[in-house]
Write a protein that binds this DNA or RNA. Structure first.
Lengths: 168, 168
DNA sequence: TTGCCCCTGTTATAACATAACGAAGCAGTG
DNA sequence: CACTGCTTCGTTATGTTATAACAGGGGCAA
């Protein structure tokens, strides 16, 4: 690549995000994977966003520090982060959020972490729940019809507590 | 519109699909809505498909009987059918399945029907469950954090019983 | 040094979905 | 019937999300 190789890590995130990035970096290393610059940037941008953020919004942000970025750049990073459980895709929004579980968990990829997402249609904020009863119920229902569960997507749309207060 | 107005109902579906179409037609009439030719065709194609079917596949099928069909033609029909609870969108697949509940139910749109979908990643077939425990659990979990639930999406990816047998 | 694997760059295109506007059809009313 | 309002549909264009395919670079181990 021509030109002075800019250190992408010049992009700074808030302290708590930097902490999570460092933890993620160590987590990946333990898995034998590398949280490269691009992946780190994308994860940082997702963690810094108060709302789910789409691939093309990430691309725009990434471009200000990484001129060559193209859709595959972002999608490859997203695939990596998702495979490592560092982010989740919200299917109903085609957008991504940081996983609030991985960094509290010392298990590997197969720790069985499953989540439910509460999507507020007013403020757009997504809250991640980890409700075991829900997971158990759906797993039981599936097993009762002989279905082998590999991955479960649970997304709830509605109004969050904050927004409900403001309206009333 | 020029030319002889072709009766789109010339498209024939299997008997059981025709039955469901007739029921759907009556159901819509009770709601004060009309299951027009285009809507009927799209519903028929979805009901005839053993798997979820995407909007553009529907468009291709529709075109053989309806030359002018364009994406909005299909998406408008899909919106109508979805609003009336006659089909569901599988978010993970961006594809549509017929609802197996509506025709057994004599309530209106607000009957509170909620479903879980089991998606087999081998054969692609989707089975619809209606497990109350799962719905209760997720609703309870949401309410516990003050979230007002309006719509829940539950999609489970894995291996169906049939496919699990064949592999082993 | 060679070969391999992972990661990235690059171009192109596929796949999914909606905006906007006008006209045709259909139901109810006077 | 003519008028009106509403729903539905045709049409063109565009927006949004995601992937295919292939080439190059860089590290590491045999």
């Amino acid at each position: 690549m021509p030109g002075p190789s800019v250190q992408m890590n010049e992009m700074r995130f808030p302290g708590d995000v930097e902490d999570r990035l460092s933890l993620s970096e160590r987590y990946c290393a333990l898995q034998g994977s590398r949280l490269t610059d691009t992946r780190r940037q994308v994860l940082g941008m997702i963690l810094s966003s108060p709302r789910p953020i789409g691939a093309y919004d990430l691309l725009d942000l990434l471009r200000s520090h990484h001129r060559n970025a193209a859709p595959p750049t972002v999608y490859r990073a997203l695939e990596f982060l998702s495979d490592h459980g560092l982010i989740h895709k919200i299917e109903r929004l085609s957008a991504f959020v940081g996983c609030s579980h991985r960094l509290r968990c010392h298990h590997g990829k197969a720790c069985g972490h499953r989540a439910q997402f509460l999507i507020c249609r007013t403020c757009g904020i997504v809250k991640e729940l980890e409700n075991d009863e829900t997971e158990s119920a759906v797993n039981l229902a599936a097993r009762n019809v002989g279905f082998h569960v590999e991955h479960t997507t649970i997304e709830v749309e509605g109004i969050c507590a904050q927004c409900a207060e403001h309206v009333s």
